[in-house]
């Protein structure tokens, strides 16, 4: 936040669905981690379905959500990303490049995070635990040996995810201490301080998020044969 006076105004940047999905993934990831480590596989599976639902929602929201959530608005090519990095690390620090939503490096991080999380949940769907009982819902289509292989890939991909989360947190600390930009509160309350001329992004109506969430929940319940 840059509160230098009356020249800045509070601009809404992140809509409610984007923030909910972000923090839901954080909480569900923690639950998955703990339940996986302590072999509470029933709850691990349920939390994993939650992560899969959240990822699918975020992917859908990236196509039909608000401006800052849309992939089209923040995913940039290599040239634009490289230019952003040069500006970020270069001499013109007094005039930092500051897109209203995700910056091009953040976009790469988001794509990697969504990709790894989606890979993780799909691997989990086919994984079989050592006892052969606790398994993903699609494990019945693979042999015990293949299911165990999926479980090992699930564990390896988890370490990649931990590394990526470490990078994500390091980047937040970098912006906080090296660039005096606090990204964390904006992801909680959804607002940033900007110059009035910058204008605000557009947002999608709530019913679109509700429809998308209901559609994904229904598809997952049918596909995964979830019995409550």
């Amino acid at each position: 936040m840059n509160a230098t006076g009356a020249t800045h105004e509070r601009v809404r940047v992140w809509d409610f669905p984007t923030r909910i999905v972000h923090w839901a993934i954080v909480i569900l990831f923690g639950i998955c981690w703990w339940t996986g480590e302590t072999e509470h596989m029933h709850w691990h599976r349920i939390a994993g379905y939650g992560v899969l639902g959240a990822i699918l929602f975020r992917l859908g929201w990236g196509l039909c959500g608000g401006e800052t959530a849309r992939f089209r608005s923040f995913v940039r090519g290599p040239a634009a990303t490289f230019q952003y990095v040069r500006k970020l690390l270069g001499h013109d620090r007094a005039d930092p490049p500051s897109p209203i939503g995700h910056n091009p490096l953040g976009a790469l991080s988001i794509l990697a995070m969504l990709g790894l999380l989606l890979t993780q949940t799909v691997l989990g769907l086919f994984a079989v635990d050592v006892d052969g009982v606790a398994s993903g819902p699609f494990a019945r289509w693979v042999s015990f040996a293949t299911g165990r292989r999926f479980a090992h890939w699930h564990a390896a991909n988890f370490h990649l995810l931990l590394a990526l989360i470490g990078m994500h947190l390091t980047a937040i600390a970098f912006y906080r201490f090296a660039r005096s930009e606090n990204l964390l509160p904006a992801m909680i309350h959804g607002f940033k301080w900007r110059t009035p001329s910058a204008g605000g992004p557009y947002f999608a109506p709530w019913w679109r998020a509700a429809l998308l969430a209901a559609g994904i929940a229904t598809c997952l319940a049918l596909l995964l044969n979830i019995r409550w």
Binding site: D131, G132, V133, A139, R140, F144
Partner: peptide, 14 residues
């Protein structure tokens, strides 16, 4: 033995 146990339990579960 444990692999056999796991494999058998999976076979039954399938």
């Amino acid at each position: 033995h444990f692999k056999t146990l796991g494999k058998t339990a999976k076979s039954l579960r399938d």
